[in-house]
């Protein structure tokens, strides 16, 4: 019998990553609904609704840690979380790009860099998106570089290039391997373990 799961992601790239993890760990599940919330605040505000949804199907939620100290501190700031078994609230340390980088080999071949150029402990990166962009700036071919890296690299906005989401979501769907990446990122490992419990 097909089981259902719901996905709530902070942005498009996170959504692509969560879908890939589910397809790898939970082959018996279909994603019954999936949404991109455009920021952590929106996720936090709607948590009550997801808790209600979790009574009928598991809900996988993922947000970035960003500048906060650690996931428990971040979540404690969200007040008392609804105690609901099916509500899987995961935090990517510090950003979803850390999980992406954690599949070193595939990221290296996607960008065109040597595997040892890819950061080895992505969860320790202060700004994983910047690290990914640095990698692309140094090694990517001209088309990919133009797609990923913003024209004005030092401006505060935009932080990503014009086809960043398009190219990375495609990479995640076709090449990225959760079972490899989980070995390099503790926050991804915890998320995968939580998912496996649903199997």
């Amino acid at each position: 019998m097909v089981k259902k799961i719901a996905v709530v992601a902070e942005d498009l790239l996170t959504q692509a990553v969560l879908h890939k993890c589910i397809s790898e760990v939970l082959p018996a599940y279909i994603v019954a609904r999936t949404e991109v919330k455009g920021g952590r605040g929106n996720v936090q505000r709607e948590l009550g609704a997801y808790a209600a949804l979790a009574q009928v199907m598991p809900v996988l939620i993922c947000v970035d840690l960003d500048g906060d100290d650690c996931a428990p501190t971040l979540l404690s700031g969200w007040g008392r979380l609804p105690p609901q078994a099916g509500l899987l609230l995961r935090v990517a340390v510090r950003e979803i790009e850390a999980w992406v980088l954690a599949d070193q080999k595939r990221v290296a071949s996607f960008i065109g860099a040597a595997p040892n150029e890819v950061p080895k402990r992505p969860d320790e990166l202060f700004d994983p998106k910047r690290s990914l962009l640095e990698l692309a700036r140094a090694h990517a071919g001209s088309e990919l570089k133009a797609d990923l890296v913003p024209r004005n690299y030092d401006a505060s906005y935009p932080r990503i290039g014009r086809a960043y989401n398009l190219r990375l979501c495609a990479f995640i769907a076709s090449k990225w391997r959760p079972h490899v990446a989980r070995k390099k990122s503790a926050s991804l490992e915890r998320a995968m373990v939580a998912l496996e419990k649903l199997a």
Partner: peptide, 8 residues
Amino acid sequence: LSDQGISL
């Protein structure tokens, strides 16, 4: 306009 790759 939500795409974060759009410059101002």
